[in-house]
Design a protein around this nucleic acid. Structure first.
Lengths: 169, 169
DNA sequence: CATCATGATACGAAATTCGAAATTTTCGCA
DNA sequence: TGCGAAAATTTCGAATTTCGTATCATGATG
């Protein structure tokens, strides 16, 4: 399957956790069952329960991991969704624009990229005016954006974070 | 009299959902924290712990509820992350391409869009060759893609999980 | 080499979950 | 309206898990 680098004490010194591979394995188990007992995870991964507890709470505190319930109807019904490719105005950094847009709760994803655009963002909402409002107030009303390519979502085929995650069963 | 849509003794009865409002409230709480203790849920909703336990296991058994961990791959792994805008070849539908790419576990997001591209996908991985391999085997080796704009991720400013309910916190 | 910091572990106490039986509620039906 | 069966809820002691905290191991630092 994957590469499985066990003791790669190299650059994987992540944001705030050593031994990243353990975190990945914990996450992998919790992705299958978000309620799996820490003690069982510990047993499967051959470490102590306290370690699992510390790791999980650490990951959660840093918003790197979220354990939530999803009910199929709800999860499948978020739709009005658009990807927007942005080019920032001259003299403005992508970071500055990102920090402004970040505050909008409908913007759920902001990635600084190289290539045709400077930023790619994802906009979701449950009401049809959201896109219009966003364009009006967050894009056109600001002079830090030179160009915005709006690509309305038509159908979401895959989103690792939404259900469907049940693979490998 | 009562409009509540309380116990619709129709087909929904057999599954296991009498008092639907209670299920909704349970789900609402678990959407905020998938690990909330049954006893605490019970306390908040003023029913017994056993009821919560029965409801949750019933919902889960019937695949009406899923409790999973979601991790931000970019935050948890040290990954290369790319957004790729795709245009499908003539005579091919975005759906067909999506169904092919969907199988690749490194593709975590596939959205059919209107606009400059047909599909926008997100690729994550834990090693640097992944992008090259993906382009080689999944893009160039296939004749269903007319164009691919690769935009390597530079920095992820925001990646909020795309759950409707997370908007209302 | 001592010290400090960080993470892992150990362990008793508190809390939670579990299984199963008892109780209550629901609902069809005469 | 009342009865009985089925379903849902509650109860409760035991098993399990989680939690708080102290201790240990490992590096980094001066």
């Amino acid at each position: 399957m994957s590469v499985k680098k066990q003791s790669n004490a190299r650059a994987t010194q992540s944001i705030r956790s050593p031994n990243d591979d353990l975190n990945q394995q914990i996450i992998r188990l919790l992705q299958q069952d978000g309620r799996m007992a820490f003690s069982e995870i510990a047993q499967q991964l051959d470490v102590s329960e306290g370690t699992i507890r510390n790791r999980v709470s650490g990951l959660r505190d840093n918003n790197m991991l979220r354990i939530v319930a999803m009910s199929d109807p709800v999860a499948t019904e978020y739709t009005t969704d658009a990807m927007i490719g942005l080019n920032v105005a001259t003299g403005v950094t992508p970071r500055q624009v990102a920090e402004r847009l970040e505050k909008n709760p409908r913007v759920v994803f902001i990635l600084w990229v190289a290539g045709r655009y400077d930023l790619i963002i994802e906009l979701v909402s449950d009401d049809d005016d959201a896109l219009k409002d966003f364009l009006e107030f967050d894009i056109h009303a600001s002079d830090d954006i030179a160009n915005a390519d709006v690509m309305p979502g038509l159908k979401n085929f895959k989103n690792q974070f939404l259900l469907k995650q049940s693979l490998q069963e």
